[in-house]
Amino acid sequence: MSKINSKLKSIILVISILLIITISGILTLTYFNKTADKLEKTVISASEAIKANKWDHAASQLKSFEQSWEKTKFGWAILLDHFEIDNIDNSFTKSKKFVEAGDFSASLAELEALREYILHIPQKEKFTIENIL
């Protein structure tokens, strides 16, 4: 009876570990997609505002981005390499300053870079052959 129990324990342990990893992986990817999407929308709104010369609106969008980012940062820091977080932080700081200075080209360029850094995260975490290899 104890032999069967110990064999069963090993099988249950293996299946539990595999299930936890698989489910966590799926949930993590969903979380990244959702949060990246929300952050990207704010960045796009800021870019559109700059193109339409609405600098105040662009600044308020960046303020809204900052608030969302502060909430998202903690979760992303647990799951990602910290240099990814640092990249987004650096790019956001630069974008904010360019917008404050009213620099059209630099603001748009830096906001586009910020958008790439954000979208890079869910793309990097996707379950694809490219990422596995």
Partner: peptide, 25 residues
């Protein structure tokens, strides 16, 4: 390396553990 999340060490360890138990079985 504090830049690498802990989970990046824990998940591979658990995966190896599961694979090891499976192969032993």
């Amino acid at each position: 390396n504090t830049g690498i999340p802990l989970i990046n060490g824990i998940i591979p360890i658990l995966t190896m553990l599961a694979a090891q138990i499976l192969i032993s079985y």
